[in-house]
Amino acid sequence: MKVLVPIKRVVDPYAKVRPLADGSGVDTTGAKFEINPFDEIAVEEAVRQKEKGAVTEIVVVSIGSSASEEQLRKALAIGADRAILVETDAVLDSPGVASLLKEVVEAEQPQIVMMGKQATDDDSNQAGQMLAAKLGWGQATFAAKVELGSNATVVRETDTGEQTVTLAYPCLITTDLRLNEPRYVALPGIIKARSKPLEKRAPSVIPAAMTKVVSVELPASRPAGRKVASVEELAAAIKERGAL
């Protein structure tokens, strides 16, 4: 069984980032970049499934500039077998990403596409579902547990608890936080993974963006609060603010 894992290069989610001075975008000067944490969980899951014998090949793919090679190399170090970089500097929205991934899926013919539920930069939570829709595949989003046998059985998180779904292959799974904790890969592992194949492809066509970020601003800041001295004072202040 072959698994395709799309990964996105994102600003380190723990870094403090701000809007550009002119508000035209996000200032990423000096920021570290990482694999989107939810995508890294997908890579880890694919590798664990391979270690269990349920998966035979893991292909990671990223869409972006040559800088994304760094994240693909890390995914190879975690245990993916080979990597594809769809190289473009174009600004893509989720429908565009899904279109380009669809091309890769059609070329690679994986039984499963596994990817993060959302990227920690734009927080869109769209690309996986849109890809499944474009392929006409069944999907299981927000995966908390994955078992791969004659079917894929996925325990997925819902608004009110958990749901178990069974999917025939091919299918798409998006990964949530609790699925696993990705392993730590030390530098020697990343260097060793340099011998694994990384292929660069150009997209056949650059999809036109249907959504465009035109400005970025800081959210309204909260007025400074105050400490109260007693429970009585607290209760009175809550009532006074009409919060009940």
């Binding site: 980032v17 701000r18 996000v26 930069d121 734009d122 970020v213 970025v216 959210p219």
Partner: peptide, 10 residues
């Protein structure tokens, strides 16, 4: 965006 640390106009 960015976990609510910024607001984008789209």
């Amino acid at each position: 965006i960015f976990a609510g640390s910024m607001i984008a106009t789209v």
